[in-house]
Design a protein around this nucleic acid. Structure first.
Lengths: 241, 241
DNA sequence: ACAAAAGTGTTTTTGATACACCCATGC
DNA sequence: GCATGGGTGTATCAAAAACACTTTTGT
């Protein structure tokens, strides 16, 4: 690998993890000690970022950064936007942080989001923590905007493509699926109508297996077959706005 | 304005223009003369690109490049992807072109598309030409891929948001609207059903005005009211995949 | 036996699809 | 007066929405 970095450009990773409490985002700690190790000058949170190496594609760089953090490969990811306004550096903390790392303040970030079931990850690093999307702390730079933008894109995507399954374990119950939709889209769905609709899809396959332990009555498990999905998806989508 | 360029990064503009022959794309000529002015070493087409100035946002840079070319402001535009693979430079022509302009071959391009009715533009520059999306010539770099990606994004967008109107004149007939959908999506639509559906939308407003001259029977004109659209759009979108 | 989540059907309403002819005007 | 694109209505079918109770299990 060519380890020289492409200057001026970074990759930002927004990692969405679904669990029973809803959608979460994995953030990295931003700490800067200057005078006193006990009292850092900066101590807050930011997205996980990294650089692109000279011989890497953007996707490869994003995946490398993500894998370093989570140990996972083979997850759904999407490049959803690029952020490079001159006013991304919002305050003295941001500026100080960049100076301390000798980073050009005019960095352009290509942003990716990743989807996974929170249970799949055992975190590899300290200084990394899950936050509910509803309780994101103040972040450095324009990272709050980037998260909002990623979340908008995700909501859109969930409505038009079967990415919801990327947020669930491989085998899931219908109620888990419904809750996934409800928390991503922040809506309520009628349980009977939802089941009717889902069960009518050939690519959602009932398994001869039940989830026990979690609740009283064991629930049937299902899986998503991308195979069947690809073969059966009808071409005529509707104009719908 | 700070005229220093941000290194390594460029903006690519995909300009979609609709006219009666369907969707067109505006391309710039790529010419390089070395030994003989009569016989250029390179003579083909590419997307219109440009640099970002140090104090510009990405959107501002894209708009500036677009306006220089078309003289227009106030058009719909969208940043839809960023392209920066190390293998973007595909052949000797590409390499030669970059060397001749002292461009780093590892450039990352933030790509925007613009939507307009082709009639709105009077081209400001030579060396620029409209091509039907169905007859794009061989282009430099990965620009064919970028166009394909832009067009995919546009089709998706047209199905879920009222951007089709950006491709039409402010006042349009229902058949023009139908043809717009048909050529963007490359589908056939039943005329009666289409009219029924469109007329039922409150935000498509019939005008007391007709288009004459073009055809035999004068056609009623309509306009799109974004105002009404915003006020009436229902929150409950459907899960639709 | 009871608490808790899983699972189930019917009716109404809405929107999608299929389909063929007359109309108003310019020439 | 005729060629050309503009405009119209009905019947069928599919899917969405509204709505409340029974079942199965663990404890």
């Amino acid at each position: 690998m060519d380890f020289r970095k492409v200057p001026n450009i970074s990759i930002d990773c927004i990692i969405f993890g679904l669990s029973t409490n809803g959608i979460n985002i994995l953030l990295s700690k931003r700490v800067l000690n200057m005078h006193d190790d006990q009292y850092p000058v900066i101590d807050d949170w930011m997205l996980t970022s990294g650089y692109i190496m000279k011989d890497e594609s953007l996707d490869e760089a994003a995946l490398r950064i993500f894998s370093n953090l989570t140990g996972l490969k083979q997850v759904y990811y999407k490049q959803f936007g690029t952020f490079g306004n001159p006013d991304r550096v919002k305050n003295n903390k941001d500026l100080l942080w960049m100076l301390s790392r000798d980073i050009n303040p005019r960095v352009i970030s290509v942003a990716y989001y990743f989807l996974l079931s929170k249970e799949k990850v055992t975190l590899k690093k300290q200084n990394v923590k899950w936050f509910s999307i509803k309780q994101i702390p103040q972040l450095g730079f324009d990272h709050e905007d980037i998260i909002a933008s990623a979340y908008d894109d995700l909501k859109q995507k969930v409505l038009t493509e079967p990415v919801i399954f990327e947020l669930l374990p491989d085998k899931f119950t219908l109620n888990e699926l419904q809750q996934a939709y409800e928390s991503v889209l922040d809506i309520k769905i009628d349980n009977r109508n939802f089941r009717k609709k889902i069960i009518s899809k050939t690519y959602i396959v009932p398994l001869a297996e039940k989830r026990t332990g979690v609740s009283k009555k064991p629930a049937n498990l299902y899986m998503f077959s991308r195979d069947i999905y690809e073969k059966t998806k009808s071409k005529h989508q509707l104009i719908n706005f």
